[in-house]
Simulated scan of single mutants.
Amino acid sequence: MRLTSIRCLAVLAVGTLTLGGCGTDGGGRTVDTTIRAREVMRVTQPHDKTGMTLLEGPTFDESGALHVVDVTAPSGAPKVLRIDLDEKTARTFHTDDRGTYTSAQFSPHDGRLYLTDFLHGEIVSLAKDGSDPRIFFSGKVDGVQMNPDDLAFDREGNLYVSDSHGLTEGVEQGRVVRIDRGGKKTEVLAKGMAATNGISFDVDYEGLWVSELTKNQISYLPIDSKGGRASRHVAIRVDGGLAETDSIAVDADGNLYQALHGRPAMLVFNTHGERIATIEIPAPATGLESATNVAITPGETTAYMTVSGPSGGYLYTFEALAEGIRQSNGG
Rank of each mutant, 00 (worst) to 15 (best):
Ile248Phe: 02
Ala13Gly: 11
Arg263Asn: 07
Arg175Ile: 07
Ala195Pro: 04
Pro298Lys: 05
Ala195Phe: 11
Lys79Met: 03
Ser211Ile: 02
Glu289Trp: 06
Thr44Arg: 11
Thr102Arg: 00
Ile236Tyr: 00
Leu17Asn: 12
Ser211Asn: 08
Met193Asn: 07
His47Arg: 10
Thr214Met: 14
Gly76Val: 11
Gly21Ala: 12
Gly240Pro: 05
Thr24Tyr: 14
Gly287Asp: 09
Leu9Asn: 08
Leu221Lys: 03
Tyr114Gly: 04
Met266Gln: 11
Asn197Gln: 10
Asp224Pro: 01
Gly20Ile: 02
Pro74Gly: 06
Tyr314Phe: 11
Ala127Gly: 14
Glu169Asn: 09
Leu126Lys: 06
Ser103Gln: 08
His109Ser: 14
Lys49Cys: 05
Leu81Pro: 00
Gly273Arg: 02
Phe137Gln: 01
Ser138Ile: 07
Val161Phe: 05
Arg2Ser: 10
Pro58Val: 02
Arg155Met: 05
Thr95Val: 03
Val238His: 03
Met305Val: 09
Pro108Tyr: 08
Asp48Cys: 14
Ala285Arg: 13
Thr44Gly: 05
Val294Thr: 09
Thr286His: 10
Arg98Leu: 13
Arg29Phe: 05
Tyr304Phe: 13
Thr24His: 13
Ala285His: 10
Thr100Lys: 12
Pro108His: 10
Gly139Cys: 10
Gly51Arg: 11
Arg275His: 11
Tyr101Ala: 02
Gly21Ser: 15
Thr92Leu: 06
Arg155Tyr: 02
Glu122Tyr: 04
Lys226Trp: 04
Ile296Cys: 02
Ala127Tyr: 06
Arg155Ile: 07
Thr306Arg: 01
Asp132Met: 10
Ser290Tyr: 02
Glu87Leu: 15
Thr245His: 00
Tyr257Asp: 01
Ala230Gln: 11
Glu39Ala: 12
Ala190Gly: 07
Val69His: 09
Ala73Ser: 07
Ile199Asp: 00
Gly23Phe: 09
Asn216Ala: 12
Asp86Thr: 13
Gly312Leu: 07
Ala259Tyr: 00
Gly23Ala: 15
Asn293Val: 00
Val294Lys: 01
Gly174Asp: 08
Asn147Lys: 12
Pro74Cys: 04
Ser200Tyr: 00
Ala259Arg: 00
Ala283Met: 08
Thr33Phe: 09
Ala243Phe: 03
Val80Phe: 04
Thr72His: 04
Arg38Phe: 08
Glu172Ile: 02
Met52Leu: 15
Val307Asn: 00
Arg91Phe: 03
Val161Cys: 05
Asp25Phe: 07
Val234Lys: 15
Val141Ser: 06
Leu208His: 01
Asn147Pro: 01
Leu119Cys: 11
Arg178Ile: 07
Ala73Cys: 07
Val80Trp: 01
Glu172Met: 15
Thr34Lys: 15
Ala194Phe: 06
Gln145Glu: 11
Leu151Ala: 06
Arg229Cys: 14
Cys22Lys: 12
Thr44Met: 15
Gly299Glu: 02
Gly166Phe: 10
Ala285Asn: 08
Gly15Ile: 13
Val238Glu: 07
Thr92Cys: 13
His233Gly: 01
Phe60Cys: 04
Gly157Tyr: 04
Thr214Arg: 14
Lys79Glu: 02
Asp150Lys: 04
Pro310Cys: 12
Ser5Trp: 05
Arg2Trp: 12
Tyr205His: 15
Ser211Lys: 00
Gly23Gln: 13
